[in-house]
Design a protein around this nucleic acid. Structure first.
Lengths: 204, 204
DNA sequence: AAGTAACTTGGCATGCGCTGCCACTTTAGC
DNA sequence: GCTAAAGTGGCAGCGCATGCCAAGTTACTT
């Protein structure tokens, strides 16, 4: 694994500024709703110029969802670090359960953000984009482990869509029910549903 | 089924205007790329005021993808009209193959638009939204046919995610290979992959 | 057939999102 | 310390998107 690089003052300042902007966005948007918060306000709360905001984030949606993006980056790293001899589905399943753990840890924050995402079309769109990125990561990993090319063989893409969709569905169900159930258990159940095949459903 | 209502002059004019705006958007965006086309230009080409554009579409992306939205509306209608005694998966599969037929009919146009969507972040986002709508329609249909509630039982959502993901993957593969293969066949193969279960994949 | 109500359209004004550009300050490496 | 590189802030500008109101058009009623 890559050893931690010694961050200079510059890098630490940048990370700090980024975090302050993201936190300002979180607070303001959580309290007032995203359409009632301007980038100017977020920048003022983070004590930077509006122009600086755009050096760190493309939009206020990006800033608000940066936590989520970080979680998915962690997932991606975990997936890449699974043992090479592990089967594709096993690796993905393990990494997805790890992601579910992360969501469970930040339970309240995830729940709160999910409600705001559901109410805002713009946030919903960005959220879909993050999910598509996740799906792409999974497809890449599966193709690598199956020793096939994504361009030639569509099976990895199909499996990735199904698996990431299962996560999405489990997450949606978890959020809709106020996060009362155990998320990793839900995700595991959703994945089991796929593993067993869908043939049993839908016959009259 | 609902009988066709007799459209008055007003309604016909509105449909015509909508079509003209969409066609103007198609031509201009196809030729120059979406980021080099302004709404003002689209409105001028359609011979309406810029203000009027926004009475028909929320954005130029919406106008450009209105064909696609119509196709998905057709799919939704076809899915709802499947026989009530048909199994959930069978109904969805049949409707999806019908959608694949529609794509195949407009092969060149679909292919051209898909390339533009892949190149434009904004278009990609809107396209993801359309896919999410499709997935929701499928989840509703499956829940109805399984006689369960989406809020209580997450299985319909999981299955819908997998199935619509299969379509998406097949479509992506079809486009990536220049639409040389038969799309309904591809979609069928992707669905078969899910029906059989994923257990066979991923073991080392 | 005339009049009225409802609807569509166009133009105006406005606010916000986002980007390019340049000058100023701060950090890094020699 | 000196120079090069990088981060920051302010400015100007374009395009998107919406509210509002006046003018023109269609639909319905008597």
């Amino acid at each position: 694994m890559p050893t931690a690089p010694p961050l200079g003052l510059r890098e630490r300042k940048k990370l700090r500024t980024r975090r302050e902007i993201a936190e300002a966005a979180n607070h303001l948007i959580t309290e007032h709703g995203i359409e009632h918060v301007t980038i100017e306000q977020i920048a003022a709360a983070a004590d930077v110029a509006p122009r600086t905001f755009f050096r760190y984030f493309d939009s206020k949606e990006d800033a608000f969802l940066s936590d989520h993006r970080d979680k998915l980056a962690t997932f991606r790293a975990a997936l890449l670090e699974r043992p090479a001899n592990e089967g594709a589905l096993t690796a993905v399943r393990t990494a997805l359960l790890g992601l579910a753990d992360i969501y469970e840890i930040d339970r309240d924050e995830v729940l709160c953000k999910a409600r705001l995402v559901a109410e805002s079309p713009g946030l919903h769109l960005r959220s879909l984009e993050l999910h598509a990125d996740l799906q792409q990561s999974i497809a890449d990993a599966i193709a690598t482990r199956m020793h096939v090319d994504l361009a030639d063989d569509m099976r990895p893409a199909v499996i990735a869509a199904a698996v990431s969709g299962a996560l999405q569905a489990a997450l949606g169900h978890w959020v809709a029910n106020g996060a009362r159930e155990d998320l990793p258990t839900l995700v595991g159940a959703a994945l089991d549903l796929l593993d067993g095949g869908l043939d049993e459903f839908g016959r009259p």
